[in-house]
Design a protein around this nucleic acid. Sequence first.
DNA 1: CATGAATGAGCATTCATTCAT
DNA 2: AATGAATGAATGCTCATTCAT
Lengths: 196, 196, 196, 196
Amino acid sequence: MDKTERRQQILSNARDVFAKRGYHAAKIDDIVAAAGVARGTFYLYFEDKRAIFEEIVDGTFARLGQAILRVDTGDPSLVRSQIEENIRRIVHALLEDPATTKILLSDAVGLDPAFDKKLLFFYEEVGKLLEGSLVDGQERGIVAEGDARVYAIMTLGAMKELMYQVVMRGLEYPEERIVAEIFRFLAAGYLRVSAT
Amino acid sequence: MDKTERRQQILSNARDVFAKRGYHAAKIDDIVAAAGVARGTFYLYFEDKRAIFEEIVDGTFARLGQAILRVDTGDPSLVRSQIEENIRRIVHALLEDPATTKILLSDAVGLDPAFDKKLLFFYEEVGKLLEGSLVDGQERGIVAEGDARVYAIMTLGAMKELMYQVVMRGLEYPEERIVAEIFRFLAAGYLRVSAT
Amino acid sequence: MDKTERRQQILSNARDVFAKRGYHAAKIDDIVAAAGVARGTFYLYFEDKRAIFEEIVDGTFARLGQAILRVDTGDPSLVRSQIEENIRRIVHALLEDPATTKILLSDAVGLDPAFDKKLLFFYEEVGKLLEGSLVDGQERGIVAEGDARVYAIMTLGAMKELMYQVVMRGLEYPEERIVAEIFRFLAAGYLRVSAT
Amino acid sequence: MDKTERRQQILSNARDVFAKRGYHAAKIDDIVAAAGVARGTFYLYFEDKRAIFEEIVDGTFARLGQAILRVDTGDPSLVRSQIEENIRRIVHALLEDPATTKILLSDAVGLDPAFDKKLLFFYEEVGKLLEGSLVDGQERGIVAEGDARVYAIMTLGAMKELMYQVVMRGLEYPEERIVAEIFRFLAAGYLRVSAT
DNA sequence: CATGAATGAGCATTCATTCAT
DNA sequence: AATGAATGAATGCTCATTCAT
């Protein structure tokens, strides 16, 4: 087994342990036991417990970052499919690896102020991207008036919560269904009430 | 100072410490120092660290639960204002005490599997309430077709994320503005794109 | 038992353990076992292992510093007795507590660069004091010509080695005898050989 | 590179590492990195860390032992130069390799009780040799009355301390000057005070 | 009731040494 | 012989909790 494999072996077992027990309850012992290596071996491949956790989260960030495509608003008739495709890719990236999704949406939250800052930064980046697209869309009339930043935040929140519920509760929704529901939610909301 | 006051004094200082440092970084020492009582006194009023944390979260649950009013869909012309009032009350309850909101949305997440279950349960209860109203609304034609459960989850997520950003980043939005944006988001979404 | 006593109890047992095993071989467990307290109690009174060791050495420094009296060379007829008195006090200070002397002359040496610097600094201070007295004495004709600094260094070395041997080998010399021998050694050397 | 060379290469790099960091702070990793060999190779040539350290100290002992010449007191007119020559050889042996001198006078001290015993034994051997010469000298009238053992101990201490200061502080004394000062110190002391 | 000194289980991390290749 | 990945015993330190005063 070469170094990369061994590293991957520890990393993936650590991921499972973190997902199962949560960051603090996950002991180095649990990780090495799961990986079937000695205590010291762990430290041959990773600086410390925090470092391997961060690597898992960073990896998820990277996967998510790659999933997101820039929306080209040039041809209005293609916007919808691009947005759907983006939602589809993000949902897929999160659901194909429920363990890291659980870690990202649960264990990584409130770990400590420094880590909170890291998460906030990631979501800020994604939020900015989204916000930019929304502002762009507003100029082209394909996004409603309103605070684009707030729209972006709520969009992220809605998707995060849905993914969290799916992952934590094992909600059995087909991905395509999830994509469709999200799109509908973003496109038209659901309240049909008249003004007071 | 009577028992109740003393208890409250410890509780409220603990809340600040948890909010500032996070659950794990908050030491009993920090709490008793903030409350100005002796180490042992803490244990006269609370079972253990976990218990006081849980009490804080439970208190927030209770406050939130009280904030939510049942929507009477009898007179369609009054539904909108009732919904707005609900959003207003929830937002107000969260923002009037940012410390507990931060704890609820950050420290309480991923604490351990048992606590995750507790949170999940609370959100499930709220979600069911909301889902029920949505189904009810669907029957009366004031809620669009679609999966009410998913709508409920995304609604919760959108609101949680917005509150989280306000609390963590100190976003300076007037409450009324937030309420209006949320309502608009839920009512009409923002995408105005034609089908492919 | 009040805090000062408890502290002293741990300190003095630590001193014995350090003297017996040496700094590195002395484990916190050995110290607390000797003191009859729990592991955590140790850390209630001392920052860490290094700190208690440093305190022991600093205490010895202080005792030694107090033992040394400034020699008043005003009345030449009184110089000899003052010097003898100084030697007597230093020798007494070291031999009345062999454990700390062993620690100072053995365990504290080569502990790490930072500690070496500390030791070097202490001996430098003592050396400067001695050197100053020697220069003063040279002006008054009661100290022979020659490099006062080297004299000071060799004097310290001679005394340190003698004390070390007494402490480590349990050499049974009466203190007064030691004082007399040191004085004679410093006063007249022992080689009686003619120049080449 | 043959076995002897490889061994020497590791040994001499270990010496530098020990001198720079001290015994405990010197890691096998540092040594093999300095020597440019693999971790396992180290153990092909040396039993363990302690063994290589001991070998370094033993080598220094051997070098020092060879530096010391027996003083032939037959012709009194030649004694002085023989003693000077001895001092010169010892000083030279120590200063030509400051790294091992630093190890001998600093890291080897207080390593553990067993090593202390070893050092004590070496100095005892040298001390006995010196003591024997002193007793011999006393019979021939070229060494003053007094306790020869104490003279021997203080002589060793004086020389050790001077060498230690030169090595640790980088004192810039020419060897010949050091030899002369030591000789003068041993021959006549420096105090010129009348009895009380 | 209040105190705070004492407790000790628990854990991350280090590093000398081994051994399969 | 040489390598360097793997090992796991060893240990300092933390901190929630207890309990005698």
